[in-house]
């Protein structure tokens, strides 16, 4: 798929989220479902769930996407990242049966619509990141996938010198400056 097509698709998902949020658009939700539900289910299977538990959890994750659509902020995360965090938390809850301590919520000041420029910048940075990951040598990419699909324990992650964290982080500045600015 060409870069331009991918970029269009990503902004499309943001639009889908807006339509789900503002007008409870079921057609938009169904399209989002077709794309993300098989990915979330696959993520859960790789993390150790059997097919029926993974199906159940994937459905719950997507119901959460619907119920929390108004909390999605396109200036802070891509749609894929937001869904990833929901799926990850569901995984910890359902598979590892643990609480997931979360940091204190930030107070972002009076609630307002995120500036369109911030949304575009964040979505572009997400695109740059996805491309950087896609272009990694196969072995490094495989390691990342293993880490995020729950196939590495935390001590394996800590011991893993082949993880391309520096490479990736030097190629992105994801939201760092803007995030700090927003919290002043």
């Amino acid at each position: 798929m060409s870069t331009r097509e991918t970029a269009e698709k990503r902004s499309l998902w943001v639009d889908h989220m807006v339509r789900i949020h503002t007008s409870r658009d079921r057609a938009a939700f169904a399209e989002l479902y077709d794309h993300f539900a098989p990915r979330v289910k696959g993520f859960l299977i790789k993390s150790g769930a059997d097919a029926s538990l993974a199906e159940e959890c994937a459905q719950e994750v997507m119901v959460t996407v619907w119920a929390k659509a108004h909390l999605f902020d396109a200036s802070r995360a891509s749609v894929a990242t937001w869904i990833f965090t929901i799926a990850r938390n569901r995984k910890i809850d359902a598979l590892r049966k643990q609480r997931r301590p979360e940091p204190e919520e930030l107070t972002w000041g009076p609630e307002e619509e995120p500036a369109q420029a911030d949304v575009i910048a964040l979505q572009q940075e997400s695109e740059t990141l996805a491309r950087a990951i896609a272009e990694l040598p196969a072995q490094q990419r495989a390691l990342l996938e293993k880490a995020y699909f729950g196939e590495l324990t935390h001590s394996e992650i800590a011991a893993q010198t082949g993880l391309p964290l520096g490479t990736i982080k030097s190629r992105i500045r994801l939201a760092l400056d803007r995030l700090r600015h927003a919290m002043k």
Partner: peptide, 22 residues
């Protein structure tokens, strides 16, 4: 936030991990 974005990118584009839905 950067690390979560890596998770998002991996979730979005790991073709080997697509499951068939019921």
């Amino acid at each position: 936030a950067s690390f979560d974005s890596i998770g998002g990118a991996v979730l979005d584009s790991t073709p080997g991990a697509l499951a068939t839905l019921d």
